[in-house]
Amino acid sequence: MSNHLKDITLKIWRQSGPNDAGHFESYKVDEISDEASFLEMLDYLNERLINEGQEAIVFDHDCREGICGTCSLMINGQAHGPERATASCQLHMRKFKSGDSITIEPWRARAFPIVKDLMVDRSAFDRIIESGGFITSPTGGAPDANLIPIPKPVSDAAMDAAQCIGCGACVAACPNGAANLFTSAKIAHLNLLPQGQAERFRRVEAMVETMDEYFGSCTNHGECEAACPKEISIDVIALANADYRKAKIKNRKQLARN
């Protein structure tokens, strides 16, 4: 059942620090089980590099179950590699063939500066959430959970959007380096729910405007949706756009801006 791939050539981006120039370096992996995950292949390579006295390749990863959103690799020009709806950590070597050449690059965007090798800093996402990606509900004051019935379709739609793992593949894949899918997924999640209505328009305004400080603009290519490991639909972008419009026009007076 388990086969081995032979002669894999890896072209991996090495960069020693945020302000250093980087370059591609080639590595050969002579043999690897097709049961190995892509990151395990990198582990294997790293162990060899350490044995050879070289510095291991730095890459972000943690849960390896496709849910924490830490892994972030541009594999052969695709965010998270060739498998649909799959984060880098869940990609397996059986998707490749013997003799393949695989190019691995970090996410690239102004808002995602490279930390080292393949690792980038995605704090800009946190800044967006901090600006409004929450429902203000201090601990202790919550009413009974069943007080507000939420229609199942509404709850399901909110859940579809809430699945975002914050990996940044949307930004990485976007030809414009835009973060609209990430931002809108959170806006859609909270703005669809009854609990989120009180801050609905303040939220969308704050989040969209914070996003603007870091990222490019959406021109509706749809690359983000195709790269998203959770297959979040660009419908959420339309929803956020509509809410931003309403926040700016219809609710300008109620917002009491100063």
Binding site: K11, W13, G22, F24, M74, N76, G77, Q78, T103, E105, R108, A173, P175, H221, G222, E223, E225, A226, A227
Partner: peptide, 9 residues
Amino acid sequence: YQSERDYQV
């Protein structure tokens, strides 16, 4: 990107 992009959609 320093390598070729593979656009999906």
